[in-house]
Amino acid sequence: METLPVRDQLLQHAQTLLMTRGYNGFSYRDLAALVDVKTSSIHYYFPAKDDLVLEAVRLYSSKTLSAMRHIDASLPPETKLKRYADQFGALMGDGDRICLCGMLAADITSLPDNVRHAVQAFFEASEAWLAKVLAEGMKQGTLHVSGNIECAARSLFAAFQGSVLASRLFQSKARLRDVVNALKSK
């Protein structure tokens, strides 16, 4: 089995720590123990924790948004939302993780501006994609949305983020499906 380069291992473990503990819940010492390196080695790749977290957010955002954008455009809107919910569920791993950007949003007062902007960009891109799907579903009559589509997309994204928190709390991914089912037309 091929071992990942140290930098990639650091980013992989940092993402997991961010998704389970948040920005303030881990240190370079924690990360060094997981990768079996000295903290000075981490500083070689990421001089400050902010550098590490920003790169982790960029990597996570790129991967997550790419998967979202690769949901088959020809699928019905309600199926796209189900696939989106499935992706959110996959983020949870064994149920102990939440969306990395959602976790960081909870730590917003501790984040440096560049990380905060990267988290905001993730939220905005997700909300824009959801707005397109909701508009399509409204047009086809398969999804019900009250009011402004952009407001509904922001509310839907917040519902997905909240459902991941509740799913973690109750150790059940069923709450993700509840979000999608609440939008379907009768």
Rank of each mutant, 00 (worst) to 15 (best):
F26P: 06
R154W: 05
G22E: 04
A153V: 08
D96Y: 02
D8M: 10
S126P: 00
A125I: 02
A135L: 12
Y60L: 03
L75Y: 10
A73V: 12
S27Q: 03
R175C: 02
L169W: 11
V180A: 07
F170P: 00
T109W: 05
R7W: 02
V115G: 09
C99Q: 08
Q9A: 11
T3R: 13
R154H: 12
V119D: 05
F123E: 10
K80G: 03
A125R: 06
A118C: 09
Q140H: 09
L65F: 03
H117Q: 15
V145K: 02
F157M: 05
S40E: 10
A166T: 06
A153G: 04
A166P: 01
S185Y: 09
A159G: 04
H117V: 08
L111W: 04
T142N: 10
R177P: 06
P76H: 07
K184M: 09
C99S: 11
F157A: 08
D8I: 07
L11C: 09
A118D: 12
M138K: 14
T109Y: 13
A33H: 07
S167M: 03
F157W: 06
F170C: 07
A106T: 11
T3D: 03
E150H: 11
L183W: 10
I42V: 11
F122P: 02
S27E: 06
E127R: 15
A105S: 08
E150T: 14
V53K: 08
Y84R: 10
S167I: 00
G25Y: 07
V6Y: 00
C151Q: 15
Y44F: 14
A85P: 07
G141Q: 05
A67V: 06
L156G: 01
I98C: 06
D107H: 11
V119Q: 08
K38V: 01
